[in-house]
Structure formats: C-alpha cells, structure tokens
Simulated assay, not measured.
Amino acid sequence: MSTADSATRTLDFEIAGLVAVRTALDGNLGQHLAAAVELIRIRTGRVLVTGVGKSGHIGRKIAATLTSTGTPAHFLHAGEAGHGDLGLLQADDTVLAISKSGETPDLAPILDYTRRFHIPLIAITSSHTSTLGSIAEICLELPDMPEACPNNLAPTTSTTMQLALGDALAVCLLEARGFSSDAFHDLHPNGRLGATLRRASTLMHTGERLPIVREGTLLSAAIVEMTSKGFGVTAVLDAAGHLTGIITDGDLRRTFRSGFTDCTVEAAMTRSPWTITTEALAPEVLFQMNARSVTTVFVLGNGRDEGTPVGILHIHDLLRIGLG
C-alpha cells in the first residue's frame, strides 16, 4: 500500500468515526451530553480531566480547551493521583475520565476517591457497561469503531472521536455560559489569536497625538498639524467638534497641482471620510484599510462623543500586534 493510500485509509476510518459520533448525538449520546453540560455548568468548582496513555494526551487538550473557553479545568495525571495529587480534587469539582475500554486499572484511585467523597463523575468511553461507564453519573458512550491502525490496536479513530466530543462539550459550555469574545480575549491576550480580538479602543492614539484642525483653518496651518503629528492626515472639525472631513497627503497634492494657494481647509478636504467606532475589531479594520488603500482611520466616539474623533489608528498599529 502506498503512502497516499495509507494516509487516505487512515482519514477514512477517522471520518467514519466522527460520522458515527454525529449520528449518536441524535440519540442517547446527545441526551447525556446535555446532562453533562448542565452538571458542569451548575457546579462551582473545576473540571478535573483524567486519562491514561493516548486518552491522557487527549484529556490534556480537552482540559486546555475548557479552561480557555470559560470553564476552569485541570488535567489530573492518573499515575500521580494515588501519590498525593488526589489532593487537587475538591468537593465542588467534577471529574471527566477518558478511557476507550473503561477498564484502565490506573484510574482506580481516582474513581474510588470520587465515590468515597461524592464527587460527580462523567465518563467518555466506548462501553457504558465497563467499570468506568457503570459507576459514572453520566456516561458519554462513543461508538466502538475500528481503529485506523491496520492491526486495530493503536488509538487513532478512538482518540479522534474523544477529542471531537471534548470540543463539543467545551463549545456547548461556552454557549451555555454566554462566554463572549471580550471574555475570550481576556484569556488570550497574546499572539495572533489575541490580536484578532483586539478592538480599536485598545490600539488607537488619543489626546495630544490626534491631528485636528477646525473649519476655517488655513491650509498652511493644517500642513503644520499633519507634519507635527506624523500621521500624514488631519481631521477637520466643525464648531461642535464633529468630524466633517479629513485632509490627507493626496488631498494636498490635488490642491497644489495648479500651484499653491493658502485657502481654508474646506476647499481641500475629503468630506464624509470612512471612520470606525471604538468597538471595531482589528482584523476588520485592517481588511478595510487594504480594500480602501488607506493607512489611517479616525475613531469616533459613542454617546456624548458621537461624531467626534476620540482616536486615530495607523496601519502600523495593526501590523505591530501580529496582523497582516
């Protein structure tokens, strides 16, 4: 069998496993998943995820996903649990144990502890009649599908299904808790993911950095303002402080094409320019900048400041945080 054939066969097995999970959600698995979501949602403690071997690796990822989406979770190493790490478990926690067979002896100390101290146990296993499945308050029984390994031994299809169900659990909890993009950003402030959730209000230049002139200002004075602030643009405000236009380098070139005339800014400015609000997300701002072939945009305020520039964003501000 060629490499391509082997890879295709592996993916076909794993896709079949995911389809089987999707089908099972229309039956008992879906009902039990809903019960697991509600149990975790109403509990005040953490989710302690445990598993052995490949299921343990999947458990670490599920714990990380839960934590990053608003459900505090921790991975409890089954091998270390019986040597003191059971102290991590508190009365208000919930245990999520993962085992394909449901008969992994390494889980025994954790399972016994949950029974003695009445800590709710949720199982992800392929057999509800197994030791794990039978003692769990809620058993998320996965279809017993063949592994992609030609010997039907190496955990492949089964771990793919475990991971997918863990993702489904995390997303269901996220939605049940009303976990917002702002809350998500609070937990992901770094890297590209954090950058995609940044809003204009957190990136814009404000106060003395804002290039601003009033209607009636001479163009020569506007040039000084543009040069001193370094953005290559200035806002033009009316008597009420509302933005009525902007002057850019391009506007200056067009105005001076037939020779310099020190007119008022109204004669040179671009009226009704593109603006954004403080809530605008950084990726959308960058997309619009590229689409409009501009490098700066004024940020308008809300409420009492509606229509008034409260900040300015330069394309470099967006590139600096990892977008682009």
Results as ranks from 00 to 15, higher is better:
65 T>I: 11
65 T>M: 12
68 S>G: 05
69 T>P: 08
72 P>H: 04
72 P>Y: 01
74 H>V: 07
74 H>Y: 07
78 A>D: 05
79 G>K: 14
80 E>T: 11
80 E>A: 14
80 E>C: 12
83 H>C: 04
84 G>Q: 06
87 G>H: 09
88 L>H: 09
88 L>R: 10
89 L>Q: 07
91 A>D: 13
91 A>V: 11
93 D>I: 00
93 D>W: 04
94 T>Y: 01
94 T>H: 00
98 I>E: 00
98 I>N: 00
102 G>V: 08
102 G>S: 12
103 E>V: 09
106 D>N: 06
108 A>R: 07
111 L>Q: 04
111 L>I: 06
111 L>N: 03
112 D>K: 04
113 Y>L: 08
116 R>F: 03
117 F>Y: 15
119 I>Y: 07
119 I>M: 09
120 P>T: 15
120 P>M: 15
124 I>R: 07
125 T>P: 10
126 S>Q: 15
128 H>I: 09
130 S>Y: 09
131 T>L: 02
132 L>A: 12
134 S>Q: 15
134 S>A: 15
134 S>V: 13
136 A>R: 09
139 C>F: 09
140 L>I: 07
140 L>S: 08
141 E>M: 03
144 D>E: 09
146 P>D: 13
146 P>E: 15
150 P>S: 06
152 N>Y: 05
152 N>K: 03
153 L>Q: 03
155 P>I: 00
156 T>G: 01
157 T>E: 01
161 M>N: 00
163 L>I: 01
164 A>P: 14
165 L>A: 01
165 L>Q: 03
166 G>I: 02
167 D>S: 01
168 A>D: 04
168 A>C: 08
172 C>P: 03
172 C>A: 12
174 L>H: 10
176 A>Q: 05
177 R>V: 08
178 G>P: 09
179 F>Q: 03
180 S>F: 02
180 S>T: 14
180 S>R: 01
181 S>A: 11
184 F>K: 11
184 F>G: 10
185 H>W: 06
186 D>G: 08
188 H>M: 05
188 H>D: 09
188 H>W: 13
192 R>Q: 12
192 R>L: 11
194 G>Y: 15
194 G>R: 15
196 T>C: 15
196 T>V: 12
196 T>N: 13
197 L>N: 11
201 S>D: 09
202 T>F: 08
203 L>E: 05
203 L>G: 06
